[in-house]
């Protein structure tokens, strides 16, 4: 895949940990790839698998979910729910013609600005390596509720 492919990545970051890690990376003036666009949710447990498929369907080449470390979720265990859902979804993604590597879940705490930078950079490089998601064959033909 050509190296100047610029992937579009949606980041679902929880309000209490990963979103704050991104704020910290900012106040610390760390530089990282501009490809991840953040959608804030209160908790990673709010991230609906349909939302992830919706992102792939609308042109995302990758989806990064960021939550608090195990035991640190602001709502006790929303991050475990996110973990279970993403594991299941990763199993299903190939059925839509989407490589499971395009979905990643990471625990990044409010103090881990450096880790946020590294994860974003690594994931962007990985998606760049995978190349664009061919939308025609990949568009998940599922009904989205609501």
């Amino acid at each position: 895949m050509s190296n100047n492919f610029n992937p579009s990545i949606v980041g679902f970051f929880c309000n209490w940990c990963t979103y704050l890690a991104a704020d910290l990376a900012g106040t610390s003036r760390m530089k990282y790839a501009p490809n991840v666009r953040v959608v804030r949710t209160m908790c990673s447990g709010r991230v609906d698998p349909q939302m992830i498929l919706w992102a792939f369907r609308h042109g995302a080449d990758g989806v990064l979910i960021g939550g608090c470390h195990p035991g640190d979720c602001h709502y006790q265990e929303g991050n475990y729910k996110a973990l279970r859902r993403s594991k299941l979804l990763r199993k299903m993604l190939p059925q839509f013609g989407i490589e499971p590597e395009r979905l990643r879940l990471e625990w990044i705490s409010a103090s881990e600005g450096e880790r946020l930078r590294d994860v974003v950079n690594e994931f962007t490089a990985e998606i760049r390596h995978l190349g664009p998601l061919h939308k025609k064959q990949a568009a998940p033909q599922m009904a989205v509720a609501a």
Binding site: G45, R46, D48, P49, A145
Partner: peptide, 13 residues
């Protein structure tokens, strides 16, 4: 408390 876990899980929206 507004975590939204139920919303993500609800199959009917």
């Amino acid at each position: 408390k507004g975590c939204g876990s139920c919303v993500a899980a609800c199959p009917s929206g």
